[in-house]
């Protein structure tokens, strides 16, 4: 065990994956000698050489097109998109190519080796284009897996699983927590399951559901609520696609209430999908309407970032409203 921050945990996962399998390659803008703008790929080029860890030209559609080809060839590319806000030039390669490669060929070919890492989320004064949470766009694309870790231990285990999963995985890294989140991380090579949510605190009055950096927020809100005598069950969805309906539904069957929180805008956000499924599964057990605490339906702001974000106080108020409904 070592105390690592989230970036160090990711770096360690990449290091382990590259050491264990020479087909694993890491590349993207500034990923090579510099080690990435956040330094997630630090020292990998020194250790594994320029052929396996390298800079690419500044062209996201090219990075993912190149990665799709490599994965189809049998390599295990781990491509970095410098910010999730800049993933959209690669949208066609991801949704029309990565996601459909196996299906359209009848499993003659696949890009299962592909992992796309990208930092997402606000809280770092990044304004419109260094703050977005685009997970819902990709959740609408069968064939992709979408994963978001909440802390260093989770990040390492989920990233190793993503790299080795036989399907293309989009791995959204909460950049606000890159250095802010620290914790004990085993030095060993371990994997955490994709597609499985985790109940991180049991409770009886309401289920609080989130993923990634938003976990910290709902945990703080749960503490505030506990002081008011409200028992919260806190669940980390971990995988947005495919998502773990069973764990969420079982929790809601027990508590009778559900609150979902994400930074992305409300309309079309993934909370809507969860709410629709859970009301279908748990209709007669619900004590109150499913609550969503999210970003506003605006582009991501700068100066008023704090006002925009679904912080612990907004979640706390929504918990009380749900319980008092």
């Amino acid at each position: 065990m070592a105390n690592l921050n989230l970036l160090q945990a990711i770096n360690q996962a990449l290091d382990i994956a590259m050491a264990a399998d020479e087909r694993v390659l890491c590349f993207g803008e500034d990923v090579g000698g510099f080690g990435g703008v956040f330094r997630a790929t630090s020292h990998l080029q020194e250790k594994y050489g320029k052929a396996r860890c390298f800079n690419t030209p500044l062209v996201e559609q090219g990075i993912i097109g190149f990665a799709n080809g490599l994965a189809a060839q049998g390599s295990t590319p781990v491509a970095e998109i410098q910010f999730a806000d800049y993933i959209f030039p690669a949208f066609d390669q991801i949704v029309n190519e990565s996601a459909k490669f196996r299906y359209r060929s009848g499993d003659l070919f696949n890009v299962g080796g592909l992992t796309i890492r990208t930092p997402y989320g606000g809280g770092i004064a990044g304004g419109l284009y260094h703050s977005q949470s685009p997970e819902a766009y990709f959740a609408h694309t069968p064939g992709l897996k979408v994963v978001v870790p909440r802390n260093p231990h989770q990040a390492k285990g989920l990233l190793l699983a993503a790299i080795r999963d036989p399907n293309p995985v989009l791995f959204f890294e909460p950049k606000r927590l890159y250095r802010a989140s620290t914790g004990e991380v085993p030095e060993s090579d371990y994997q955490l399951p994709l597609g499985e949510a985790e109940v991180i605190k049991e409770g009886s009055d309401i289920t609080l559901l989130a993923w990634g950096a938003q976990m910290e927020v709902i945990e703080e809100a749960a503490e505030l609520a506990e002081k008011e005598g409200i028992s919260c069950e806190v669940v980390d969805l971990r995988s947005i696609l495919p998502w773990d309906v069973e764990t969420v539904a079982n929790s809601v069957l027990k508590t009778g209430r559900l609150l979902i929180s994400h930074e992305a805008p409300l309309t079309g956000g993934f909370a809507g999908e969860i709410a629709a499924t859970i009301q279908e599964r748990c209709f007669l057990y619900l004590e109150s309407p499913i609550s969503r605490v999210t970003g506003l339906d605006t582009p991501f702001p700068l100066t008023l970032e704090k006002e925009y974000l679904p912080d612990r106080l907004k979640v706390f108020e929504a918990i009380k409203a749900s319980v008092a409904y």
Binding site: A51, F66, N68, G69, P77, Q93, N96, R104
Partner: peptide, 23 residues
């Protein structure tokens, strides 16, 4: 490689595939 209707997507994929062949 199985054909994909979207135009030109196969071109950067070919670059990546060939990079894998080179390695």
């Amino acid at each position: 490689m199985t054909i994909s209707s979207p135009l030109a997507t196969q071109i950067p994929q070919a670059t990546g595939y060939a990079y894998g062949q080179k390695l």
